[in-house]
Amino acid sequence: MRFFLFVTLLILLSFILQEFLPTFEWAYGSRLLLVHAVFLAAAVAVPFPAMLTFAFFTGLLWDARYFVPIYPGASVTGLITQTELPFGFTILIFGVMGALIQGVRPLFRRGRWELPVFMIGFCTGLGLVFEYLIISFHRGGLELPPELLWKLLMTALFSSLVSPFLLLLFSRVADRMRYRIRTEGLKRRHTYDGDAL
């Protein structure tokens, strides 16, 4: 329980720190998405129900702060009343990315961080790709300029670079708080020919 409280406080702290993180013009406006990195690193360490809970409130807070109400062109005719990226879309992104990264929990538990570090960057970039695809769907035409690819790559890279420190922090705090990272639900319950183990 204390560990979950620690994760909650760290996510709230990351929102404050995010305000101070600049965008890098040399990297086509990319920046370190600290909130995403903290959530994804936490998602490696907590069980599935807790991950969903964190995904919900982290996504809700993100949209409360960063949601931009841009309506697609057809909205002027009254055909569309929903914004391009609906309020709450980040909750979905966090939920999907969190579920994806839960797959590397056994590796994190064994102290193998290579794949979790890669996955944190990958999932951050993938979330941005989803958002861009939704925007492109609304506006029509998929534009993929090199700047966009650089922005996605650099944002993912920044998340990957910061993630070892976050994983180390979660690992140390888990040890100190006697929180044990369990991998229940990930066990293989059946043999490949269908017989129960």
Partner: peptide, 26 residues
């Protein structure tokens, strides 16, 4: 597990509820 399914369904329900927020609530 049953607990995971309950949380997943709750998450989906809350997500739908949030996306249906009116502009004044947002």
């Amino acid at each position: 597990s049953r607990l995971n399914i309950i949380f997943l369904l709750t998450f989906v329900g809350l997500l739908i509820w949030v996306t249906l927020f009116q502009p004044d609530s947002i």
